[in-house]
Amino acid sequence: MKKPGIGICFILLLVLYILIYPVYCFSQENATDEAISLTALFDRNTAKAGSIIGLTLSFRLPEGATISKPPDIKGLEVFTVVDQQTYNNRISMRLYASQPVLFKTGGISLSYLDKEGKKQVLTAAPVSLNVLSNFGDKPEKAQLRPIQGIMPTRSLFLKYWPWACALIVVIVAGLFIFHLYRKYRRRKLLLEYVDPPHIRAKKDIEDLESQRLFEKGSIKEFYFRFSEIIKRYIENIREFPAAEYTTEEITSHIDNEKDRQILPLLRHSDLVKFADDMPTAAYKEEEVTAVLKYIDETTPVYEPKDFKKSTGGRDK
């Protein structure tokens, strides 16, 4: 009988060859791909702007190939590399995400030198990282606080100009009102001083008489005001503040014979004012007449330009 074993073995070996060879070829092919690969992997999918992110670049280089030191990596310009460590088949990096962007790693590449010294480039399969803003969903509406010298500040003038304008308006209005008030006061004073001293004194005596204080029994009040008119008149025509002087002081300052005529009257006024002396109506009339006569006799003669001097130089 013919031995069938050899033929069957041959067929079995052929079948095995047919089955195994493609697997071998496939595995050989895969093995070549695995040797030259680059994968990028972030340690998370999302991160906030300003945070530190971890990135691992795993690579397989062809036999005899090397990477430069430091490794030449491109495509990470969006991030700031804080530090990186290179191991056998991977590079660990820590990145600072400074801008809120949706990052896709399509462009990360690593350069290496093959065994012949030529520069080759490995490109990673795409991964993505979403760097979110710190200001929520609508960062454009966030109110950034200015920091002098760091974040641009808004001009103080722009910020406060409405208030500054309001303040200026208030100040100007205040000054204007003050100016009007001064003008009014000056006019009032001018009106007060428009009369020369003798006319004014006579008018004041006339006013005093018309109030009939003496007749109503307010004798002291009459003499207080009467003596004040006399003192003011003396003050205006002479060079000393008679209104602030006592009768004794006025006496010591008077060096004019005509002025001496008025001293008994001032002394009598003191008696009425401070010692309750009660003069008769006739006596009072005599005194008023004497004062009017004194004013007539001592009326200052001056040119209009000298008028200011007649006020005794006092700014009332």
Binding site: T246, T247, E248, E249, D270, F274, A275, D276
Partner: peptide, 11 residues
């Protein structure tokens, strides 16, 4: 010798 005070006394 007065029974009343005048401003001069005060001064």
């Amino acid at each position: 010798g007065r029974g009343y005070v005048t401003p001069q006394d005060v001064k």
